[in-house]
Simulated scan of single mutants.
Amino acid sequence: MKASPRPLADQRRDLIRALMDERGAVRTADLAAELGVSLVTVRRDLLALEVAGEAVVVHGGARTANGRVPPADRGQRSGVEVDAKALIAATAIRRVHEGDAVFLDSGTTCAAMIPLLARFERLLVVTTDLHTATALAAIAPHLEIVVAAGRVDATTASVHGELVAMVLASFVFDTAFISATAWQRGYGATSGTLTYAGSKRTAISRARHKVLLVDSTKYGIAEPHVVLSLDRFDAVVTDDLVPVEARRELREAGISLVIADRESPVDS
């Protein structure tokens, strides 16, 4: 049987556009493997898309140029930037210690910490995410797991509203791991929903240390409701597709940026 022909330039670029629309960001090595072409060819395609205003080329790949906010639906988000979220989680878990009280925010980025938290013998984990609570309880029933009370959002499989703040006020956390729909230097971490932003701020106010976990596809975007300015987090952990120039600007602004990459998920 003959191998399928390699896609021509226009076909390749259509596929790359579709993948960027789906994922928000793409990696050069992954595209080369998926398309069956060389790294040089992929870089040439990405540069052509950047010239056309359809992509922003960064170290190791490219991201969308349209400021796309990730989908709200939990099912759709669960397949987006899976590798990046795993690397972010592997870096973030270094801030957790045996016996800690931890707040784990809703969302798929924070949920990537579930298998890593299960390795501890003693932890208190408080969350607003129904999936996180049930998944962690299934693999680590020895841990103390608390789900904050509130209105259930079936789209995100999480709880929100005024009751959440009342529950969170009953705790003091060693570390709060916070997610955000969008983040940028000027407006900080933001959310598309007022009550979600409020719940995040309450958790932050009850924590000794606060860490933002966000992937690069959400960078440069702003949603209507501010959670916290980036310089007030003890660390902002993200993946290596954040542009080098943006990293420099963030650090010059006094933001503790931690980059998790494929080779070594530590600060770079």
Rank of each mutant, 00 (worst) to 15 (best):
L31D: 07
R68N: 03
M166N: 12
P70R: 00
D231K: 15
I114R: 12
R77P: 15
L116Q: 04
A84Y: 07
T64P: 00
V258Y: 02
F120P: 11
A101D: 05
Y196K: 13
P265W: 00
R94Y: 03
S205I: 14
S179G: 12
L87K: 07
A176L: 08
D215C: 08
V57T: 13
G186F: 01
R27K: 14
D240L: 03
L39S: 07
D267I: 03
L228V: 05
T202F: 13
N66W: 00
A246T: 02
V258R: 08
L194G: 14
V146P: 04
T28S: 07
G79W: 00
T181M: 07
A182Y: 08
A48V: 13
T127V: 05
G24I: 00
M20A: 04
T155P: 12
G60F: 03
S78D: 02
A203S: 11
D231P: 08
A3I: 03
V58G: 15
E34C: 09
R232W: 01
A133M: 15
L163S: 08
P70N: 06
S170D: 07
H131D: 15
V258Q: 13
H59K: 08
P7H: 01
A176N: 11
H160K: 10
E245H: 10
L130K: 09
D215A: 15
I139A: 14
V56E: 10
S256G: 10
S264M: 00
L143Y: 04
R74M: 08
D73F: 09
S191P: 00
F173G: 05
D100H: 13
Q184E: 05
G53E: 06
V152I: 15
L19Y: 00
D153W: 05
R95E: 15
G188N: 02
A48W: 01
V96G: 09
S229G: 04
R119C: 11
A176D: 12
P71W: 01
M20E: 01
A112M: 13
V147Q: 14
H142R: 12
W183R: 07
I145S: 07
Q184R: 07
S216N: 14
I178C: 06
R151S: 05
V237Y: 01
Q76R: 04
R63A: 09
T109F: 13
V56R: 02
E121P: 04
I145G: 06
G67E: 08
L213N: 09
R68E: 10
V51I: 10
I16K: 08
L250Y: 11
W183F: 05
A101K: 11
E223A: 07
E249G: 08
E223Y: 01
A89R: 15
R23V: 00
L143M: 10
H59N: 07
H225S: 11
I145P: 04
V152A: 12
R208D: 07
V266D: 02
R251G: 11
L116F: 00
G79F: 00
L130T: 04
D153M: 06
V102E: 11
E144C: 08
V40N: 08
P115T: 06
S4G: 04
D30H: 04
G192Q: 08
I178N: 13
I88R: 02
G161K: 06
